[in-house]
Design a protein around this nucleic acid. Sequence first.
DNA 1: GCACATTTATGAAACGATTCACTCGCAATC
DNA 2: GATTGCGAGTGAATCGTTTCATAAATGTGC
Lengths: 345, 345
Amino acid sequence: MAIGSASVKDVAALAGVSVGTVSNVLNRPDRVGRETRLRVESAISELGFVRNEVARHLRAGGSRLIGFLVLDAANPFFTDVARGVEEAARAAGLAVFLCNSDNSELREREYLDLLLEQRVRGVLVTPVNLETERLAALPRLGLPVVLVDRIGGADWCSVSVDDEVGGHLAGTHLVESGHQRIAFVGGPDSLGQVRDRLAGAQRAIREGGLPEDALTVIATSALTVAEGRRAGQRLVGLPSAQRPTAAFCANDLLALGLLQEMTRQEVPVPEELAIIGYDDIEFAAAAAVPLTSVRQPRHLIGRTAAELLAEEVDAGPEHQHRQLQYLPELVVRGSTRGSRRPGSV
Amino acid sequence: MAIGSASVKDVAALAGVSVGTVSNVLNRPDRVGRETRLRVESAISELGFVRNEVARHLRAGGSRLIGFLVLDAANPFFTDVARGVEEAARAAGLAVFLCNSDNSELREREYLDLLLEQRVRGVLVTPVNLETERLAALPRLGLPVVLVDRIGGADWCSVSVDDEVGGHLAGTHLVESGHQRIAFVGGPDSLGQVRDRLAGAQRAIREGGLPEDALTVIATSALTVAEGRRAGQRLVGLPSAQRPTAAFCANDLLALGLLQEMTRQEVPVPEELAIIGYDDIEFAAAAAVPLTSVRQPRHLIGRTAAELLAEEVDAGPEHQHRQLQYLPELVVRGSTRGSRRPGSV
DNA sequence: GCACATTTATGAAACGATTCACTCGCAATC
DNA sequence: GATTGCGAGTGAATCGTTTCATAAATGTGC
């Protein structure tokens, strides 16, 4: 039996009523006589009728579906954001489909096209690249969009965390702990987050009176555990006079990979290398050496983003775009504690 | 400008052709004259026309969309499975929407309804409960379904890993390491996996000649890090004469939570408590004490499941249901090494 | 110059639902 | 008894697209 083998027409025939009446039973049961309604309802269950939402929304206009396109569904940061999104979306009567661009511009484009063609009601997106034509097209086509963990300017709703401040927190912490040679591990720098976190760290270095070249950038091709391990190998390969005594990683996955590699190479953390991550994912606290990290209000980011989208969906054209920004927070743990100045926080 | 403000009709009008021709340009460009095609194409881009897939599939029948309904999108096990799913689905020309039931039967039902109403082409699902009416309805309505990480009998396609064998591997490892009091941490036992892993461990205990009550079950309400911490508190609360010397956790999240709590309470692992997890997620190896775990071929599970679904989608009614099962593998690390019999593997 | 095939374009029907202007009884009102 | 009002149900139009039978224009071979 094929799906949709039963349509309103079949139901109407079996119940001996018109299609209009079946539709009324479905959508305004109060306008139908008790007798008739029961007859229609039993016909529905007898035929296993399932309303075809596709056809319904063709006629009735927009659905209550939104898409959430994330950069990396395997990153606990995004899964926590997604939880917040789901929660707020449900409250607003929206259902969420999660899509994973996996850092690929191609897949991002494909998913955006798909969501557009499916006529979802709105899109939450953490774009790989803010400058793509495809992304810019969405608001022009009238599709509500909220940027998550990104800022796109006054023409976009966005919910983000101030990454420059986060980078500054991390950098200051390391400078104040007495480190003179610091590595920044992160990339690709097409990612705005990576650039901003680096900029914040650089500012901290300047403010701490260290020379610009106190900061070595170790570029990675992605924000993953595997790339973190690779960065670790490069770090260990440096002559020890040049080797940084602390590393600020653009996210916790990198930091965990780096930490793993240090353990493998028997470089003690934090004594020989202090490590600081970003995001404060749940696993950071449980790492071999508990990870110092910059915490972001992940759940809140998701909730707020979904609420903004719901607002935009319901307000229509008179909606005013808003840019919300939260502040990050430093969480100090063993991976930096007492690395240079024993006893300091 | 509302979405879909431009329809084929508008394009046709602007290009001075009929709607049929526009449709031909879209679907069979070779049947259209060069001249006309160019005119239509420029009208399309001028109006920012986006084909309405909803309407298209109403007429043309089935889409190429599938849904993947997971138990817990925040569990790295599932995100790795999802990666495999995506990869194979893409290869088969299918797009995947990820849905998260978050262990809730209610949300599972809502998402299944949603997927059904959206007329997706097939569904991959890790059900909260195999016995629900809603799940049973899907094949009856002709919707291809593949169970992931579950077995549903001969009427279902499924891809799973033998959990009983996995539990047995873990149990045997602990028994052979000389442990006499073992805790099983897991739940709720409505989850088939939890039951099977426990059963495997129990068999290992019997085979090892230990009494049945050598195994204490510490029930949890979910397979999360937080629940693992809670289980740890209960474990520490036991009088030390009764306290197990090893814990087998139904997944790695529980194990990581348990490990965290042991560290906090200063119970040395593995000396006072050996811990073994399940899934071998990426973070297991990076834990404070690297975690012994039962590895499942996560990526392969996802790939195979999507391939089975694609086959079912394309074969139609003459499709034969198949049940595939992989074997798990024990990965021994520090969290159990040398706990009772120093030096043993 | 004729018959015939080929290429190109047309326009109406169909997909499955909703919506809306109507009709049909029937009771209440004056 | 005529009029009004109301609740219940009808059926055609509609959403945006594809498909298909058909028509018109063009090319080919003799």
